[in-house]
Design a protein around this nucleic acid. Structure first.
Lengths: 111, 111
DNA sequence: TATATTACCTATTTGTTCTAGGTATGATAA
DNA sequence: TTATCATACCTAGAACAAATAGGTAATATA
């Protein structure tokens, strides 16, 4: 039933989150919407995807979290560390490599 | 140690194999090399990746296998079924969607 | 008062890639 | 002859990330 391993999605949540947090600090719930927006509605990551990724990235020191109380709301804001920025450029390099490979494969003549 | 889940690789072996076999029948060992070629060396799938994918696709009726003896060699040739062709166009549609989403995200202005 | 929204969380399932082996045959080199 | 390399197939298990499907609690709105 569960379609848990959709094609081409590995690494995508991490990339999108690092990308967004590289622009400005954000909290999890906010990221869920922001992902839809920057991806032009291509991706709609559930909270159950976003939060575990955030925790994983924090554990690996790619992100730093700070709790804030704003407008009576308790939020966890995340920012990208230096290590996280390196990871981001590593990831986008990988993305370009993979994209190049697949587009090369799909672009070849039929027959 | 084992780097088993590299980013952006989910669905890639399946896509490449369906793509190659959509052009002409091939056997596993041959596919390993062909993948390197069409992907312009972006991908180098080990035999341990290719064979299980072939078996999985055959089980799902996306591929059909026939054993052949050629030049004193025993080989298993695969061809894409009608169902496999549908799967292929589904997959490449997904690829375009994901590519569009990520490129949209990465393309946005820095801030 | 009841419902919707905000905001956080995690356990479990799923399934795919990858590693790291292994077997057997035929061709080539020493 | 012997040893090595290339061909050609195979699988078990590890690793691991995404997705599902829940849950809690506070605030805002109907």
């Amino acid at each position: 039933m569960a379609k848990t391993n959709p094609p081409f999605m590995s690494g995508v949540p991490e990339l999108l989150i690092l990308r967004l947090l590289g622009r400005q600090e954000m909290y999890g719930y906010e990221l869920v919407r922001a992902v839809r927006v920057i991806s032009n509605d291509a991706f709609d990551l559930a909270e159950g995807v976003v939060y575990p990724v955030l925790h994983g990235l924090e554990k690996k020191k790619f992100l730093k979290a700070k709790r804030k109380s704003i407008a009576g709301r308790n939020r966890v804001y995340y920012t990208v560390t230096v290590k996280g920025k390196k990871r981001m450029s590593e990831l986008s390099g990988e993305w370009e490599r993979v994209k190049g490979g697949i587009d090369s494969a799909l672009g070849e003549q039929h027959g």
